[in-house]
């Protein structure tokens, strides 16, 4: 079976975990391995970015949060962006134009990440949450329907960031994940050590460039298969006719 079909199944699993609260299960202690708002009425998992901000506001080192993020990072790195994160899935679904900007620098997500952490400290507030488009979609809109939220200035700010992100996603493939997502920024630090990883065989590669065309993140898998933007989605694996690129979930070989 093609990887893309498996991926749709796990992405469905991510959405399911995100909304499992519908069944009446309350909040658990689990950190979500992606960007999913804990304020979502049906969330049963803790948003890592929200938790880190709160711990900074409390002035406590987030041992538990950092430990959990390290565990996710070691397991799959940005693989969660490609295979699990509901907001990543939305990026996938909206990026029907498949347009990519290959050479554009994409360090914006680190700026957002550092800005989020420093902002939480400087303002003693979860400032990023007030702008987060995932929060707009997953908590502002549901709470408006539930009657807790009203259309006020913070709500309109949320709608503006969501609108801008949606426009970006439609225009550029995986716009949010590639340029802005702080969670993607954290997980990308583990891309070179994660168990889930791409392997490339130089012997069979014909340098046809099919992987590069297929890649939603605009990287060149046959030149750098551990790039910080690689979400290990396997689009390049499906596209590679000689089979030079393969996806593995195992300890890495030396080299």
């Amino acid at each position: 079976m093609r990887l893309s079909i498996w991926r749709r199944i796990t992405q469905g699993g991510g959405v399911l975990l995100g909304l499992l609260g519908v069944t009446g299960i309350g909040m658990t202690h689990i950190l979500f391995p992606g960007l999913h708002c804990y304020a979502c009425p049906w969330a049963i998992t803790v948003c890592p970015v929200g938790l880190l901000q709160n711990m900074i506001v409390f002035g406590t080192f987030p041992f538990f949060g950092v430990g959990a993020i390290l565990a996710y990072g070691l397991a799959a790195g940005r693989g969660f962006c490609g295979w699990f994160c509901p907001f990543g899935t939305l990026n996938d679904l909206l990026s029907f134009r498949k347009r990519r900007i290959r050479k554009a620098p994409s360090y914006g997500k680190y700026v957002v990440l550092v800005g989020t952490l420093v902002g939480a400290w400087a303002l003693a507030d979860t400032a990023f949450c007030k702008l987060c488009p995932a929060g707009s979609l997953e908590s502002s809109i549901p709470y408006l329907i539930l009657g807790v939220a009203r259309v006020n200035r913070p709500f309109l700010v949320h709608m503006a960031t969501l609108g801008a992100t949606v426009v970006g996603m439609v225009l550029v493939a995986r716009f949010w994940c590639r340029y802005l997502c702080p969670m993607g920024g954290i997980l990308s630090l583990f891309n070179r050590v994660s168990l889930l990883h791409l392997r490339w065989s130089q012997a069979t590669c014909t340098e046809c460039g099919a992987c590069e065309k297929a890649c939603p993140m605009g990287i060149e898998p046959h030149h750098d298969h551990d790039d910080h933007n690689c979400i290990k989605c396997g689009a390049c694996v499906d596209a590679c006719s000689p089979g030079s690129l393969t996806l593995h979930c195992s300890p890495r070989r030396r080299g």
Partner: peptide, 8 residues
């Protein structure tokens, strides 16, 4: 309500 931007 004020933390995630439902109100100020």
């Amino acid at each position: 309500t004020s933390c995630v931007g439902i109100e100020e």
